[in-house]
Design a protein around this nucleic acid. Structure first.
Lengths: 112, 112
DNA sequence: TCGCTACATGTAGCGTTACTACGTATTGGA
DNA sequence: TCCAATACGTAGTAACGCTACATGTAGCGA
C-alpha cells in the first residue's frame, strides 16, 4: 500500500504508535508495519522527517541514547501530542464517514 | 472539513458522483456537498482542475453545451472510469481498514 | 579478513495535488 | 443598478510523502 494517500493522516498513526510507551524511530516504523500486517511498510525517508516534524510541533519529545553500540533517538508523546492524537482519531472517524458516504458503493456504517 | 486530507481520494469521489449519470462541474461540486451534509464543500479551484485531470486520464469524457445562456461542460464516466471507480472503492476499503487498525483507539468495524 | 544483512539515523530534491486568489461571463432578484 | 448565484477557468503556492543517497555499527557466514 502506497502511503501517498496518507497525506494528513500519517501524523496520527505515528502518535498512536507512541501511545503505549516511548519508541525509537526505527521501532516505530516496524510497529506500524506489524500493526497493519505488513501493509503499511513506510520507507525511512518518510518516517524520520515526519518524526522531526512532530517534534518541532511539540507533539513528541526525543532524546538520544546508545543501545548496543548504536545511537538511538527515542521519542515519547508530550501532553500536547496526546491531545493531538485524540483529535486525530476524532478527525479520522469523521473523515472516514464522509468519504464512505460520498464514495458509496459499499455497505459502510456511516452511523456514528 | 478541509480537503487537504483528501490527497489521493478526491478522484474516486468525483467518479462516484458521476456514476448515476452525467453532470456538469458545478453540479458535481454541489452533489458532493449535499451527499456529505455540507461537510465537503470543495472550492471550485479544486474541482475543475481535478475534472480536467480525470478527463486527460481518460476516466471521464466532457462535452460542451449551453443551458439557460450559460455554457456548461458536462462530464460522463468512461468505461475506464467505471473500472477505476471500482478500484477506488476497493482501495478505500483497504485503506480505511489499515488506518483504523493502526490508529486504534476506537471500535471500528474492520470486518467487511 | 571480507562482504553481506539488519539495524539505525539522516538529508536533498522531486512530484503530486489540493489550496488560495484571482479573472471572466450570464441570469435574475433586491 | 448592484449583487448573489451560477458556471467555467488559470496561476502560483504549500504541504508532504517519495526516491535516492549518505553514514555508521553489529553480527554472521564464507
Amino acid at each position: 500500500m502506497r502511503a501517498e494517500a496518507l497525506k494528513g493522516h500519517l501524523d496520527g498513526l505515528l502518535l498512536a504508535t507512541l501511545e503505549d510507551g516511548p519508541q525509537h524511530g526505527y521501532a516505530v516504523k516496524e510497529a506500524l508495519c506489524d500493526a497493519t500486517g505488513g501493509k503499511l511498510d513506510l520507507p525511512t525517508g518518510t518516517v524520520y522527517p515526519a518524526l522531526h516534524r512532530l517534534e518541532r510541533a511539540g507533539l513528541i519529545k526525543g532524546s538520544w541514547s546508545v543501545v548496543g553500540g548504536r545511537r538511538r533517538r527515542t521519542y515519547e508523546l508530550t501532553e500536547q501530542g496526546r491531545r493531538s492524537l485524540a483529535g486525530a482519531r476524532d478527525h479520522w472517524q469523521e473523515f472516514a464517514a464522509v468519504i464512505s458516504a460520498a464514495l458509496g458503493g459499499g455497505p459502510w456504517p456511516a452511523t456514528n
